[in-house]
Amino acid sequence: MHIGILEDDQDQRDYLMLCLQTQGHELAGFERANQLLRALREQSFDMLIIDWQLPDACGMELTRSLRSEHGWQGLILFITASQGEGDVVHALENGADDFLSKPINPKELTARVAALGRRLANSTASNALNEVEGIPGQYRIEQEEHTIWCAGLQVNLTQREYQLAVLLMRHIGELFSRAYLLEMIWGINGDISTRTVDTHISRLRRKLGFDGSHGLKLRSVYQHGYRLEFCSDGESARKSA
């Protein structure tokens, strides 16, 4: 992958690049946020690694801006000296795909980057299709626009909600554990509460009508996770009545 590393401390930046060079990644280091933003206009990156404390910007605010103002869709690994759960959740809510706390463990760094790389590969394979085949006609997925339509209307989804919905709709009938969904959609291994998954599942049921009213039902499987299933014609009719 082509990875941009924004870290103002040269020793830390060199350390990160040394750890990742052995994995065969193409790397570019930046000291200031304005240098990274300029590079983004000229180069294509698969992933950005962003430190929280920067001399000319706040890494948290930069991450939010990249998502909401610049429309950057690539992966972001956020680095912070804080280990507070509130700060971690705040970073994820502002658009980070994963986080690492300092001091950086080289094995954990390479493992997290590899996990995010698998997500990128899965996303690329998914985007090769214009539609997800086999879903009921009430639904339409527009991969290029990252949108989902239900009953002729475009549904307002966050990036995470969209990713979660597409994963479930591409694997109808397959049971997913909360831990698996956390890793695939958020890129983490149980570092934040699995209630995050439950909250997003609840929103998808409401927003996309995954209660059976449009032919799909998102079921909870006790102590296991979630499964999106086809509904019988009778069940869909009852929900629509």
Rank of each mutant, 00 (worst) to 15 (best):
S82D: 03
Q73K: 14
S82I: 00
Q53L: 13
G24Q: 02
Q35F: 05
W52T: 12
R41F: 03
S82M: 01
A91E: 11
I104P: 06
R41Y: 06
D9Q: 09
A96I: 10
C19L: 05
V88M: 15
R13H: 07
A115V: 09
P103F: 06
A28P: 00
D56T: 01
V113R: 07
Q10C: 02
S68I: 12
I50C: 14
R38A: 13
Q83M: 09
P55I: 00
S44P: 00
C19F: 07
L66C: 03
N105G: 08
L75Q: 13
A115P: 04
C58P: 00
G24D: 04
I79N: 02
Q83T: 13
Y15A: 09
H25M: 07
Q12W: 07
G86S: 10
L54S: 02
A57V: 02
Q35G: 11
D46Q: 09
A115D: 12
L54T: 03
G74C: 01
G86Q: 13
S65K: 15
N122L: 15
M17W: 01
H25Q: 08
G29K: 06
L36C: 08
K102E: 04
I79K: 03
L62S: 09
M17H: 01
P103T: 02
D56P: 08
E42N: 09
L36F: 08
P106K: 00
G86R: 10
G29M: 05
H70A: 14
Q12A: 14
A114Y: 11
Q43A: 12
D11N: 11
Q12P: 00
A39P: 07
S82Y: 02
A121W: 05
A91K: 08
V88N: 08
E85G: 01
Q53R: 15
Q35W: 04
N34W: 11
G74F: 03
A121K: 15
C58A: 09
R32I: 07
T22Q: 11
G84S: 11
S44Y: 08
V88E: 12
S44W: 06
T22W: 02
E31N: 10
Q43C: 10
L120Q: 13
D98Y: 08
H70Y: 15
V88L: 14
Q43E: 13
L100Y: 02
Q10F: 05
L66H: 04
L62M: 15
L77W: 10
V89D: 10
D51M: 00
R67L: 09
Y15P: 01
L20V: 05
L40M: 15
R38S: 14
V113L: 08
K107F: 14
R41K: 13
L48E: 05
I76H: 01
V89R: 14
L120G: 04
L27Q: 03
A39Y: 04
G74R: 01
G74Y: 01
L54P: 08
D51W: 02
